[in-house]
Design a protein around this nucleic acid. Sequence first.
DNA 1: AGCCTTTGACCAGCG
DNA 2: TCGCTGGTCAAAGGC
Length: 425
Amino acid sequence: MAENGGAATSPAEVKRPSISLPAKSVVESLFRGGPAEASPGPMTLASSLFEAEPEYRSFSQLLAGAMASPAQPPEEAAAAIDARGKEGASLNLGHSRPMNFSVVQSQLFMVPPGFSPGGLLDSPALFSSNLVNLGNSHQHALAEFSSSLPSSSLTQPVSTINMAASSQPMLPITHGANILYPESAFSSDFDQISQPATIVADKPADDGYNWRKYGQKQVKGCEYPRSYYKCTQVKCPVKKKVERSVDGQVTEIIYMGQHNHDRPIPSRRSKEGGAELNGNPDTNNSELLRKDDHLNETSNGMIGLLSTKEQQSGHGLSEHLEGSSDDEELCDGEAEDGEPEHKRRNLETRMIESSSHRTVTEPRIILQTTSEVDLLDDGYRWRKYGQKKELLQVHERGMQSSKTRRKGFDRPESRHNDLRGEAQP
DNA sequence: AGCCTTTGACCAGCG
DNA sequence: TCGCTGGTCAAAGGC
């Protein structure tokens, strides 16, 4: 039988550059106050950057401040954000910071059921054109969410979190160490249900709901087989698609639909994932969930999308840093012509549009480099050769990349969609 | 016994 | 019309 997407998908063969923290730098200060051993995720980096700037209280202020470059006064930056808010906004936090690394936040922060992106989406601070008054609770919640990312985040090239419409529980995020953050950790009813702090990748997404796998396919252009799950609750229309890497890590989860029922009782789930329930919800999660209560007021979103592919892909950072490489985040065989990718993007866009009741503006936070030559600690030395001022264009590329995943491996183009006895290694 | 996963086959949309 | 592709069905088997 044909190899699953090509034998080249072996993790050992895929060299994924990772980012390590500079021994001493501003970065170090970012982690102060956090758990001793916990390394923050990229979002933490971002949020920490925000917090390190006390004068920026609201997200809009953060944006304004971030937008302001030495050549662009904050007022102009804020105006630019106002003008482009509907298209998303980029943050340039590097203007006044001696950062010698960069983190690009792009694409996928899709809020799954329970996390109620509706709350976030309803938040004018995050998604309105004016980007006004991001409540501290939101900012804090976001920061908390970020801080809950696994420590391995720092060794990931880049964290891509995309927010779109969904009412699904927070998705687990897998990282190299098979640590998942339970989507339920962001659900409003978390307080009532004992939840794990971490779950392993054996379960694609223990979000508190019960899922039945009803299919699996090798999707063309995607590295890993995609599994199809249905919520086992009767008459619950929710489905999700999960892509896994060969080593079992979830690389992407796409939620479709909205649960029309409450979560099953924990005992039910404990049967399926007893170990998952053994974890002690750390204070971060607990607090985060309390924060999330503010966010979980509405749930109009229908699709959640989460991807860790860019985290796992060592190219993500560098390409983002180069500022024009989102288009390269294509599945194999599609990078050149882009047409199939366009099709795919349209399909996914359609999915979201058809199932969401609102127009979703994806947040896009970009931390750009400031120096011409940046040491990224990913083992390579990067030279910045360009920068675009047009946020709209950047965002549009971001929209594309949010729907595309970099495919780093060759895979057969012939029809081998069905996995026939291709057991996991 | 019930629920799950696996997997070959089928279906529908699209170019 | 045909082939490709993603999504789903459903039988079989496992736990």
